[in-house]
Amino acid sequence: MLEVKNLEFAFEDKLALKGINLTVPKGEILGIVGPNGSGKSTLLRIISGVLAPSKGSVQWDGVDLTQLPAKDRARFVAMVSQQATLPDGIKVLDLVAMGRTPYLGILGKESGGDLEAIVKAMRDTDTYVMRNISVEKLSGGERQRVLLALALAQGSSLLLLDEPTASLDIAYETALLDTVLRLQQGMDGVVIMSIHNLTLAAQYCTCMAMMKNGSVIAYGHPSDVLTVENIRRVYETDVTLFDHPVSGLPVVVPISNAEGRKMDYQ
């Protein structure tokens, strides 16, 4: 279970995160939504350990991740970033193998457990076929899958994804999220995604946190969090909400304010 307790982060005299409290049980996929600048990325970066919080703690099964040395923490939490740079000239297999860094000594010869983790990660993301390809030759969707494989290879229980579908088109978007969903069903961990697209978030996340100005203003099931009032409060815009005909989950449609387009709704 992930517990975020009273998390605060100050940066250049501004409080970027104010008193965040979250409890995420195992097996959940948490979607973090909110406008730009609400602190989504910052929160993820603190959970991943890249940033240190000014106050508060991030606890996994009682262990405070913020106090762990980097190598130990890397075994607990892995993150897939939005715009990761991939070095040229390196093969997919070697990139995924980097996920085992927290487990290897300086000379780093991979042992049986490491090899199995790597193979499993590539099998789960369907990237084994690409193992010998240089990463710069991959398409956008393939890159994200490889990065996901890298994160999975870390063998961590906590997986963070920062806007994983930001630069992908529809087919890849869905494919990636389907993969995450499928993986989570076999995993005993927690997945946290920050996501732009509210509808997509609703379809794939089992719980949702909506942020504004560094605070979590709503937390719970997507149907409870995605309400017209919440969205108006946080995004300062009006939307229409439908229920998806099959899943029953919210579908968010923005309302245009342009002349001739304004639709009257009750």
Partner: peptide, 11 residues
């Protein structure tokens, strides 16, 4: 060779 954040996350 990865991003600084990424390398840090890998420990």
């Amino acid at each position: 060779q990865l991003d600084r954040d990424h390398a840090m996350q890998l420990g």
